[in-house]
């Protein structure tokens, strides 16, 4: 049974990350953008876990844990924002939120 190459895991993580990025770039709906951000965070976690497994150290998984906590906090705030935006504008179109324009 051939062991897994560390690089293979990282390539998978890279693919997931790029898919998430493509999602952020293409979707106009804030909810879908948030989902894509979750994918990207997850792929970063995957890379950390892979690194931890490569060196047989717990640190990778601990980093994953922190990412997880961060994602949880981020999602709760972001979803509150989504609710508020939908409440005030009756739309989730990111292109309508342009008040910070010059």
């Amino acid at each position: 049974m051939a062991p897994i190459h560390a690089h293979t895991v990282l390539v998978v993580a890279a693919i997931l990350f790029v898919l998430g990025l493509a999602g952020v770039l293409t979707r106009k709906n804030i909810l879908f953008m948030l989902l894509s951000v979750e994918i990207m965070l997850n792929s970063a976690g995957l890379a950390f876990v892979a690194a931890g497994a490569r060196w047989q150290q717990p640190d990778g998984q601990i980093m994953y844990l922190f990412i997880l906590a961060m994602a949880a906090a981020e999602v709760s705030v972001a979803l509150a924002l989504v609710v508020q935006i939908h409440h005030q504008r009756k739309s989730l179109d990111i292109d309508q939120l342009k008040e910070l324009k010059d």
């Binding site: 062991p3 190459h5 892979a50 931890g52 717990p58 844990l65």
Partner: peptide
Amino acid sequence: PTDMPAVAVDARQISLSL
């Protein structure tokens, strides 16, 4: 490419480090 040893890092190690 480097191989990954298939030895598990269990919850005990993680919590000790954490």
